[in-house]
């Protein structure tokens, strides 16, 4: 019975981590849009390449933030949460 409970905890943590990374879609689309617009801008005004590129990198980094939040949560779910939850379970059943 205990094995089953621990298995459910591990499986749920892995599923949660996988689901959290769905958030990677958003930054992907956003950064793609940003780079597409930057390419257009450089095509129209090649002399402004330097400033457009640095602004684009800044914007990409900020657009990436939500994806990174998801990444941090996924990493916590994989590496930190199982240990914590199993300990809580063991303490709850008094083992």
């Amino acid at each position: 019975m205990l094995e089953l409970a621990i298995g459910i905890i591990l499986g749920a943590c892995a599923l949660g981590a996988g689901t959290a990374m769905v958030a990677g879609i958003g930054p992907g689309i956003g950064e793609g849009n940003a780079v597409a617009k930057a390419c257009e801008a450089i095509g129209r005004q090649p002399e402004s390449k330097g400033s457009v590129t640095s602004t684009m990198l800044m914007g990409c980094a900020i657009a990436e933030t939500t994806g990174l939040y998801a990444l941090v949560i996924a990493i916590l779910l994989i590496f930190v949460a199982p240990n914590l939850l199993v300990n809580i379970l063991l303490r709850a059943i008094g083992a």
Partner: peptide, 16 residues
Amino acid sequence: ISMSFRHYGNVLSGTV
């Protein structure tokens, strides 16, 4: 929070 998460998340994801 967002500044530290951004920097650390990028480097850590590369390592992983």
